[in-house]
């Protein structure tokens, strides 16, 4: 047995899992250092839930794409967390004009992590829009205090055939800025979650890259418009990205 293994038998096990193993202990408690590490991770996750979206910053990142902001019927974060039903309805006074022949409504929803939206929504859309060439896209709707199903109400106003909602996923301790993408054919009131396709775990710590996420979303979008459905009847089978290793692409 090497000296290192004798000192820390978990050294070689740690490579097998991101779980917090071999932490050591002070009596039966966490050591000061591991206790502080945990608190830091939890604090980051909570900040990600509660931090408001920086809308001007997001718009700057989205330029030159046209944007519109809307709010759900949940007036603040506290209400949003207690009332998922309000996060699925448009706030009063929101005006979105019907768009003749709109194929795809593009929506960014803060969801449970504004950090995820701030970091990943614009690069995903910049990678996605060229892949949707030939389709008529709505302006990018930036929705706050928003859940996934708010996209149905928005897409319905546009009269869009399909919606793409990019949403901040519930933060974990390890990854607090993971983005999800929900694609819904014939979006409207009463759509069931089983009628959506989802691409999740778009983030920079071993998750999907922006380019690969855009590739998958575009594939599902074109298949959905061809087959006229999304959900359990449409399995994502996008081919691997062509060309160089997607991890090597700037994102």
């Amino acid at each position: 047995m090497s000296d290192e293994v004798a000192r820390d038998p978990f050294a070689r096990l740690r490579a097998a899992t991101p779980a917090r193993i071999g932490l050591g202990r002070s009596g039966a408690a966490l050591t000061t250092a591991t206790s502080l590490e945990f608190q830091y991770a939890h604090a980051r996750a909570r900040d990600a839930v509660h931090r408001p979206l920086d809308i001007p910053g997001l718009k700057a990142a989205l330029a030159p794409l046209e944007t519109v902001d809307v709010q759900s019927a949940a007036p603040d974060r506290q209400t949003y967390l207690r009332r998922p039903d309000l996060g699925r309805q448009l706030g009063s006074g929101v005006v979105l004009d019907s768009m003749e022949g709109c194929d795809v409504a593009l929506i960014i929803a803060d969801g449970l992590s504004a950090d995820a939206v701030q970091s990943h929504a614009a690069p995903v859309l910049h990678a996605l829009c060229p892949r949707l060439m030939g389709l008529r896209l709505s302006p990018v709707v930036i929705a706050t205090q928003a859940r996934v199903a708010l996209g149905d109400a928005i897409a319905e106003r546009f009269g869009a055939r399909l919606s793409i909602v990019l949403v901040g996923e519930r933060p974990g301790l390890t990854v607090a800025d993971s983005l999800g993408a929900y694609i819904t054919f014939a979006p409207g009131r009463g759509v069931r979650d089983s009628a959506r396709n989802c691409i999740s775990n778009i983030h920079g710590q071993g998750g999907l890259t922006h380019d690969l996420a855009a590739h998958k979303i575009a594939w599902i979008t074109r298949e959905a418009l061809r087959l006229q459905l999304t959900g359990t009847g449409l399995k994502e089978e996008a081919s691997a990205l062509p060309g160089p290793n997607p991890d090597a692409l700037p994102s």
């Binding site: 193993i21 966490l30 519930r170 301790l173």
Partner: peptide, 13 residues
């Protein structure tokens, strides 16, 4: 109980 109170699959504590 889970390692370090952090369930890395279900994303909860």
């Amino acid at each position: 109980a889970v390692p370090g109170a952090d369930d890395i699959m279900l994303n909860y504590q």
